[in-house]
Design a protein around this nucleic acid. Structure first.
Length: 280
DNA sequence: CGCCAGGCTTCTA
DNA sequence: TAGAAGCATGGC
């Protein structure tokens, strides 16, 4: 990855980074494409607008070298060699198709708290509505940053009760969000500490929060804590494993199973016909 | 309208 | 202890 400063911001030159694939593959919920083709969103309390200049160059609008190096470079996982990682995955026809389709995906390094709340909201829900709920959560309870709103802190949500959350229309998940906010803000759940624990301990600690089960915990570890060996198993991945990868387990994909999982998830969501019985 | 949504908790046998 | 029902809301 190469980068340099420009009057418009930071320009990077990189392989395997496609904005649509990375920002609209179900790992984050605060980005959307604007009519002019750029992608705008907020990570934590940092708004950003990105624009593809050509196949290998992306503009980070109005970003300084300092902010790029200290935050966005890590957030977008820009220093990782995805091609090298892909070369270590098992050879399998359907997997090759998945990788080809979504080669521009990068696993975002989101804030643990934001990932936790986002994936609590995601349960038994659909992506357009998840985005709407999170948008309302930020508008009502987050701090304004320019035209946008930051993600509300654990402390800010810990003082609310279930009825306060009615405005975001998240349904039965409200009590789970409150419980997470209380446990994190009082220190009963320490997300920084959890991020460094062995996997089984980390999963166990996350699941002490109401509404956090195996799948949500795995998403927090993968998207919010950089634990790329994790492998969230939702209904789509279960179907894909049964139909496309019989005999395979998460372990089959090795230490970067989480990246493999994301290729498979995105491929199946965009091409659901590959999971039909008659096509195997 | 009915089915489903990047599940989890609670109830039941 | 496994399996099903119930859960809020709304996208399609």
């Amino acid at each position: 990855m190469k980068f340099w400063q420009d009057k418009r911001g930071i320009i990077i030159e990189i392989k395997d980074f496609v904005l649509e694939q990375t920002l609209d593959c179900g790992q984050c919920f605060r980005f959307s494409q604007r009519p002019d083709g750029s992608w705008h969103g907020v990570a934590g309390s940092r708004p950003i607008t990105l624009r593809a200049l050509d196949n290998n160059r992306i503009l980070f609008e109005k970003v300084s070298i300092q902010e790029f190096n200290s935050f966005w470079r890590i957030y977008f996982d820009l220093d990782r060699d995805y091609a090298k990682i892909r070369s270590q995955f098992p050879c399998h026809p359907a997997f090759k198709d998945s990788v080809c389709f979504g080669h521009g995906i990068r696993i975002l390094r989101q804030e643990p708290w934001e990932a936790l709340v986002s994936f609590i909201i995601s349960q038994n829900n659909n992506v357009p509505r998840i985005k709407g709920i999170i948008e309302r959560l930020c508008r009502h309870f987050g701090k304004p940053v320019g035209e946008d709103y930051g993600f509300p802190s654990p402390a800010a949500l810990s003082v609310l009760d279930v009825s306060d959350l009615e405005v975001i229309r998240c349904g039965f998940r409200a009590k789970y969000i409150i419980d997470a906010a209380q446990k994190v803000s009082c220190g009963q759940v320490d997300l920084q500490e959890i991020s460094k624990l062995p996997l089984s301990k980390a999963r166990q600690a996350l699941q002490t929060i109401k509404g956090v089960g195996p799948k949500v915990a795995e998403c927090v570890l993968l998207y919010g804590m950089g634990r790329l060996e994790t492998f969230p198993m939702d209904v789509w991945i279960k179907r894909a494993m049964a139909r496309l990868f019989p005999g395979y387990t998460p372990d089959s994909f090795g230490q970067y199973a989480g990246i493999a999982q994301q290729y498979i998830y995105h491929y199946c969501r965009c091409n659901p016909w590959v999971l039909r019985e008659e096509t195997g």
